[in-house]
């Protein structure tokens, strides 16, 4: 699918619902768009079908609410794996007992493991769902777990640089994927649940950023401070491209069902 950045406020208002069932109460919203949309659809082929990477061995998250849950589960596995790995690294091991930064890293570890287990529970105990593997293989070879913050131009990310990348990515992913949850009772429940989680991820992201550079909690690479003050959301395709840099071959994500 197209690499549309969701940093303009007018994006994609009507695109997705055009080919999903419309409730009667939404009918009038669509009436104005229908004539023009029909003409456009007739004028060319759909460009939404090339997002799926057909490489065998990728982990396909699926579609609809289950797809969103699998997608979130994959990202939380990645985050939890990161905070788990860092606990045996030199940076964490060197933090003084009772220090503020150790307490923060402990909290982040527990929060992300709890989020992972939440989605595992949501997916794993229902025979009707197609849960992805519980054992995504991360590739953290680009992270130096002995370094707090990497110097500019360094080959590897420091721990806080990587934490920032994961937390920012998580927030942008939740914000961009909520629209793919189905409009039924379960979908609504998971919309609320995702909302409960994403704000905690945003709190994490802001703190990690402030640890790296005081006052960078809403820098323009994550919030459109120059225009409408909204956090930049990312499509599943954009997120997967970044997340796959931290996943081994065979564990890389295919999110072609989330369009």
């Amino acid at each position: 699918m197209s690499n549309i950045k969701h940093n303009a406020s007018d994006d994609a208002e009507f695109a997705k619902p055009l080919y999903t069932p419309i409730k009667r109460r939404s009918f009038f919203m669509y009436a104005g768009a229908t004539a023009g949309a029909t003409a456009l659809l007739l004028s060319g082929c759909d460009d939404d079908n090339d997002g799926g990477n057909p490489i065998p061995g990728m982990v396909n998250v699926g579609a609809g609410s289950v797809g969103v849950l699998n997608y979130a589960y994959a990202l939380e596995q990645l985050e939890a794996g990161f905070y788990t790995t860092l606990r045996s690294g030199a940076y964490y091991m060197g933090l003084a007992a009772g220090s503020a930064e150790k307490q923060i890293m402990d909290d982040l570890y527990y929060h992300e493991v709890i989020h992972r287990e939440f989605f595992k529970a949501a997916l794993g105990r229902d025979a009707a769902t197609a849960k992805i593997t519980d054992d995504l293989k991360p590739d953290f070879s680009g992270i130096d777990f002995g370094i707090r913050v990497s110097t500019a131009g360094a080959a590897k990310l420091g721990v806080l640089n990587a934490a920032k990348a994961f937390e920012d990515l998580g927030v942008s992913a939740y914000n961009g994927a909520a629209r793919y949850l189905s409009a039924d009772v379960a979908g609504l429940n998971y919309l609320v649940a995702a909302g409960k989680i994403v704000s905690v991820e945003a709190r994490h992201a802001a703190l990690i950023r402030d640890l790296i550079s005081e006052g960078s909690f809403v820098d323009s690479d994550v919030v459109t401070t120059g225009t409408n003050g909204l956090e930049i959301s990312k499509t599943p395709t954009e997120v997967a491209t970044m997340a796959n840099n931290f996943l081994m071959a065979g564990s890389k994500l295919n999110v072609s069902g989330l369009v």
Binding site: S9, K16, L230
Partner: peptide, 20 residues
Amino acid sequence: QTDAYMLEAALRTHSTEARH
């Protein structure tokens, strides 16, 4: 929820407020 655009606008505001 039934309006993907407004939903996303609200969520993007929501996480910005969480950063605040």
